[in-house]
Structure formats: C-alpha cells, structure tokens
Simulated scan of single mutants.
Amino acid sequence: MKLFEQVAQPLVEQASSLLGISLSITDEKGIIIGSDNKGRIGTLHPVSSRVIEEGREVVFTKEQVDNMENVLPGIAAPICFNHKVIGVLGIVGEPESVRKYVKFIHSHIEMFLRESFRTESELVQMKTTELFVQHLIHYEDWKDTSKLEEYCQLLGVHFNRLRVCLLIHFPVLQESSSQAEPLQTQLQSLIGYLFRESNEDIVCPVNQEQWVVFKIIDSKGEPKLRRTCESAIGKLTAFLDREGVHGRVTIAYGKSYMGLEGAARSYQQAQKAIMAGLRSDSEESVYSFDSWSILPDIFLEDIDLRFLELFADDIRNIWEFPESDMLIETFIAYCESSMNVSKAARNLYIHRNTLMYRLNKISELSRIDPQSFEQCIVLYIALKKKERNPLFMKVSGKNY
C-alpha cells in the first residue's frame, strides 16, 4: 500500500518524539518502512511475519530476542486497513513498561490511515471530476464519446435526466491568486452544500476564477433556481468577506437538457450568459441565458464578423470621419434611448439641435434614414460589433 509507505516514517517520528519511546513500522512483507533509528529502514524484521500470520499482538522479551537478528524486545501489533493486515507496529522496550502505549499508538495509526485514504480518495475523485468536466465542456471536439461514458461509469453519474449547468464566477480569486488555492477545498464544500441535492450533481472548478455545477433538475425545480442562486451569492460573498477576499460573485445558468451533448450545450449557454452579464451595467448578479436583459448582448456577440462586409464602405466612412467617436457615441445613445431625440440629448447632456446635426451627419456618411427603426437597428448592430473588435478587421479584403 503506497500510502502506508508514505506516512509510516512521519507517524513514527511524531509518536516517538511525543512519547519518548522507540518505534518501528513494517510493511506486509516484514520490511521496516518507519523507525526512529533510520539505519533500520529498509531492513527485514524477521518476526513480523509471525505477527501478520497470527493476526494478533505478540510480546518479545529480552531473553527471547537475544539470538535474533534485527529484533528488539517489546510488543508487536498488527496494523489493519479494510479488514486486512498491512503491516506491524513495533514498540521497543520492556513489554510491561511499553504496554500502556500500544493501544493509543495503534489506534492513532489506523485512524490516520483511514483519514489519509479518505482524503486521498477525495482528491482523486476531484481530479477525475475535473478531467471529466474539461472533456464534457469541449464535447464538440470529441468524435468518439466513449471516453466520456467511461468517466460517467467511473464517477457513478448518468445523463439520462434533465440537467442544467450553472457557472459561478469569482473574479476576486484571480486577482488574489495567493489566496485562491487555500480556498479551493472550502469552496468545494460550500458550493456542494448550496447546490448539490443529488449524489449525481457535479461540482468542480473549471479554472481559477470559475466553478461549474451540473445539476439534475425537473420542471418544478426551474422556477426556484434563480432564488437558489441569489441565496447562494449572499452566502458565497459573506464567506469570501470573512476570508478577506472582497468582490462581486456572479452566477449564470443555461437551459436544461438531457444527455452529454445537452449538458455541454447548457454550459456554453451559461458561459455566454455570464460574459454578457459581466459586460452589462446591470446590478444583477444572477443571469439566465434566456433573460431578455442580456439576450441582445448574447445575440450581438454571436453575429458573425462577416456580417460587417455588407456595411464595409458605410462603416469606413463613419470611422474615417475626424469626429467619428462623437458620432458613434451619439448614434448608439440615440438607438438606446428608443430613438427619442429629446431623451438621447438629455442622456448625452447636449442640445437637441446638436443631436440632430450629428444624426444628419451620420445619415450623410452612411445613407441611413435616422427615422427608420429597421435601418437604425442594423447600423446599431454593425457599430456595436465593430466597437467590440477594436483591432482592425479585414472586410472585403481591406482593413478598416
């Protein structure tokens, strides 16, 4: 047992230093893997085989070991794990003097092994889950999904029920990277407590600033999902505040689907929703993919850049105008003010006539009718898309 070999020497050193006695631990083959006398490590302890075979405590007096090599007087007790003897604890000294330590040290070692194994198993489970999630969220890259199905069997999860993906964004963790690692285990427990209602709900980090939850849900559970998220944000924010990490926690979720492909789709939707939410000026902290408050932003982000080819000349005319920034800001404000001239002028803190002059200039440069909703919305989308891609883009073979 590799874990046993790793912890044997630290356990011996700890107990020997604390109690002031001499100890040794052997593996199931009788090889000493832990001793306060480091010169004995790696040597054979010949009588360990007897202790392992009999499965009980054995006493060795000074007279009994006089003619034995590498055996000291004391008490030897079998160390068990999962109902199997995996080694032997040896406490060196006059048997009657050291007997009082046997039960305490023996129990401590077996308890430590159980806890270490549980912790190691949890870490393995977490790493396996993280690998699975990385495969799942890149589902479209996999021609053969058998690997994903193997992970499902290994983790004991099934995707034959509706699942929704939630993304939890912690920008403060990225900014405070030195604090991020110690918080991961605590966050794992807290997020699991807040969202996991089934043993098959999946919780794990996607990167340093995001955690993902693939949660089983039914039609009755969807209406309360937002309330669950809002409550969770309060608790997560309070937890981070106590840890001295301050900032905005954001949660977004996609729609619910069945199957591995559906789960990946829900993740992509949650990712788009959270990016749109972070870009928005909204004070909300929970975003749903189908929320009208962010759907226009998601729609805009998904428009193919080739769309701009249709308006290359018109956009270039606007962009090359000496006061292009002012014109674009005015036009966007006009559209976002429901094409209401007075309202747009107030929002821009300019005179109504100044606004009209600028709109007329936009019309002159782009041949658009500022009174036409259909024409304005198309130019608005084109300008917003260009605004999001500040680097020069090639349109119709030209840079602009």
Rank of each mutant, 00 (worst) to 15 (best):
K84Q: 15
D27V: 12
K100E: 13
N399T: 09
L310F: 13
K386T: 00
K386S: 07
I41Y: 07
K38Q: 14
E54H: 11
Q153V: 04
S366P: 02
D369R: 08
P322E: 08
K127C: 01
A77M: 13
L3D: 01
Y349V: 01
H135N: 15
C204D: 13
S280N: 09
V98F: 11
P73W: 04
V157D: 08
A345W: 00
N207M: 10
V245Y: 04
Y287N: 01
G74L: 09
E336N: 13
R352Q: 15
L131E: 15
N360H: 11
A77C: 03
M393P: 00
E284V: 02
N207E: 14
S176C: 06
I91E: 07
Q125W: 05
I368C: 03
H108W: 14
I105G: 01
S121R: 15
S363E: 07
E301M: 12
L194G: 05
L308V: 00
S17G: 11
K224G: 02
A263L: 04
V88P: 06
G244E: 03
Y380G: 06
I332N: 08
N160S: 11
N160Y: 04
V7D: 03
E115T: 10
R352Y: 11
E209P: 01
Q14E: 05
V206H: 07
L44Y: 04
G93E: 09
L136T: 00
T26W: 05
V245A: 12
V92F: 06
M258K: 09
A382R: 01
K224R: 12
Y349L: 10
S116E: 14
Q64A: 14
R358I: 03
P10K: 05
P390L: 12
S288C: 06
R40W: 04
M68Y: 04
N199C: 03
E5D: 11
F170Q: 07
S338A: 15
E57A: 05
V88A: 12
K127P: 00
Y193K: 09
H45L: 14
S176H: 15
G42F: 08
I25V: 14
F170D: 02
A382M: 06
P171G: 13
I217D: 09
Q208K: 13
L148K: 10
A273E: 03
E28I: 07
F60D: 02
Y334V: 01
L391F: 02
C152R: 05
A312R: 10
L123A: 06
P95Q: 10
I109L: 02
T250V: 14
P95N: 14
E150S: 13
N67A: 08
I21Y: 09
W142V: 03
S22P: 00
